[in-house]
Nucleic acid binder design. Structure first.
Length: 503
RNA sequence: GGCCCCAUCGUCUAGAGGCCUAGGACACCGGCUUUUCAUGCCGGCAACGCGGGUUCGAGUCCCGCUGGGGUCACCA
């Protein structure tokens, strides 16, 4: 794989965490670059200072890396096409803007935001559609500069050529946008900063970007970009507009869903990559899953490492229709990955989870974590492990009993379960060893002497020490808890028999 | 609403005119395994939106309709 001149970019705005849709775009760019021996540039689109959120960049970088998507050029990597934040490239934009102004391809526009809003409002009440009409005569450059000096709202608009624009797209084919739909748009805001359209086009050219893979929501921006490229004499990169990812109900996966859920007091849906990370998903599973949204290698292949995906990736297998994000399927992927990954890799991932999720699981206790991983085999996400082993991290007195569990395992049949506990207590107190193996021996012997099945004692024990019917295998559960806490909890359960039975 | 994009099981998709009585995966349903939960294993249900063409032959090509989506900012 040699450098063949292919250059792609991922260009996030520092407005918060990395959105799952953005991650898919980043992934496709990364895959494309890797597949063809090209380079992935990370560029920061920060031309809107109002929307800038403090530590977004650190978060975005971290989550990209968590997914395994390292970039070749950009922040923290450097490169010969920098700087890689648009806020540091103002001079370059100005230079090209001047060229446009000079050649007459752009002009100063004097309408204030209020005036424009009023015009739109009026258009709405009348015919409907508002299209910016090029002033005639055009304000002269001199007028523009003077008005700007006087502190008025002055923008620079690009003169849209008087013809239809054809966009050639690698996944959509040729898309023709009629002239009537196009208008002279702002390329420089009144604060002197470039708009997205202008900065993006200048940067793509200056950074040698050959292929632009981005969301389909950008499709209607593309004629603008193509027009600027033509009038500046830039090459037009190959565009590939990716389909959009929705919630299963067809709504957008927006950060607002999280706020809404929070208000309702229900679990917030995962929207940002960080949400998935914090909820115990593996990056291997997430990247695998989103790679299959809008792309497929064919031949019924699904479970793939990033390396395997890279080898198979191609733009002509990218599929133009929108996709819905099915969390159930993601969970299934995660389950499979969890079962396949090496213990070492799993341990590292679990530690990341423990840290990021603020979990009771102690991120620095490798030995315990590795043990938990072993006894929780079959888990779907790390959250499952957390839930299942939560009994370990709370005080004996804090154990809360699930009424259903109590009824089923303890109270049923005149408190048969309580009886079991009373009888097994002595054996436990006098146990010589307190390992899982020892527990197994002890419980097996107890079953034989009582002539009961394992479940008859395992379930009461489980409920007594965890309060629930869900825990790791009972021997490991007891071993992990230790003698004192186990006995303590059984005694406490026995003491509470009355209140538990009547509740 | 104008313009643009899209259209195979509930969902993600395979299918590039005959290999399709449409395949896989998830979900769902049923069964088995199991000390709980989960995992695992086996089986089942389930789709070419509609109407016209083209063709000996259409899920595959064309047109229309319908439906879904995107976009119409001094946001990106």
């Amino acid at each position: 794989m040699s450098d063949n001149g292919i250059r792609v970019r991922f260009a996030p705005s520092p407005t918060g965490y990395l959105h799952i849709g953005g991650a898919r775009t980043a992934l496709f760019n990364w895959l494309f670059a890797r597949r063809h021996g090209g380079r992935l540039v990370l560029r920061i689109e920060d031309t809107d200072r109002n929307r800038h959120i403090g530590d977004s960049l650190e978060k975005i970088f971290a989550d990209l890396r968590w997914l395994g998507l390292e970039w070749d050029e950009g922040p923290e990597h450097g490169g010969e096409f920098g700087p890689y934040a648009q806020s540091e490239r103002l001079k370059m934009y100005q230079q090209h803007l001047d060229a446009l102004l000079e050649s007459g391809s752009a002009y100063y526009a004097l309408e204030s935001p209020e005036q424009l809003a009023a015009m739109r409002e009026q258009a709405k009440t009348e015919k409907g559609e508002f299209k910016y009409q090029r002033p005639d005569p055009l304000p002269t450059p001199e007028q523009g500069r003077q008005a700007r000096e006087a502190g008025e709202h002055v923008t620079v608009r690009f003169k849209m050529p008087d013809r239809d624009i054809v966009v050639r797209d690698a996944v959509l084919g040729e898309v023709c946008i009629p002239r009537a739909e196009l208008e002279d748009f702002v390329i420089q805001k009144s604060d002197g900063w470039p708009t997205y359209h202008f900065a993006c086009v200048v940067d793509d050219e200056l950074m040698g970007i050959t292929h632009v893979l981005r969301g389909q929501e950008h499709l209607m921006n593309t004629p603008k970009h193509v027009a600027i490229q033509e009038s500046l004499g830039f090459r037009t990169p190959v565009y590939a507009h990716l389909s959009i990812i929705f919630n299963p109900d067809g709504s957008k996966m927006s950060k607002r869903d999280k706020e809404k859920a929070a208000k309702k007091g229900i679990a917030p849906p995962e929207i940002d990559v960080h949400d998935f990370r914090r909820n115990g998903y593996l990056p291997e599973a997430l990247s695998n899953f989103i790679s299959l949204l809008g792309w497929s290698p064919g031949e019924d292949r699904e479970q793939m490492t990033l390396e395997e995906t890279t080898a198979l990736f191609s733009l002509d297998r990218v599929n133009p229709s929108n996709a819905k994000f099915d969390r159930d399927k993601l969970v299934a992927f995660n389950t499979d990955w969890a079962a396949r990954l090496s213990p070492d890799r799993l341990l590292a991932a679990l530690k990341d989870f423990a840290t990021v999720a603020n979990s009771p699981l102690t991120a620095d206790d490798d030995q315990t974590l590795a043990y938990l991983l072993r006894i929780c085999k079959g888990f779907r996400t790390f959250r499952d492990i957390e839930t299942k082993t939560n009994f370990l991290f709370i005080k004996d007195e804090a154990i809360e009993f699930d009424p259903k569990a109590v009824k089923k395992a303890l109270a049923k049949n005149d408190g048969a379960g309580f009886g079991m506990l009373e009888r097994v207590l002595g054996a436990l107190q006098s146990a010589e060893d307190w390992t899982a193996t020892a527990m197994e021996g002890l419980v097996t012997r107890f079953c034989e002497s009582e002539d009961v099945k394992l479940g008859a004692i395992a379930q009461p024990l489980r409920v007594a020490v965890t309060g629930t019917m869900v825990s790791p295998p009972i021997y490991d559960t007891l071993a992990l808890l230790g003698r004192d806490r186990t006995i303590n909890r059984i005694k406490r359960t026995l003491t509470m028999r009355e209140s538990l039975t009547t509740q």
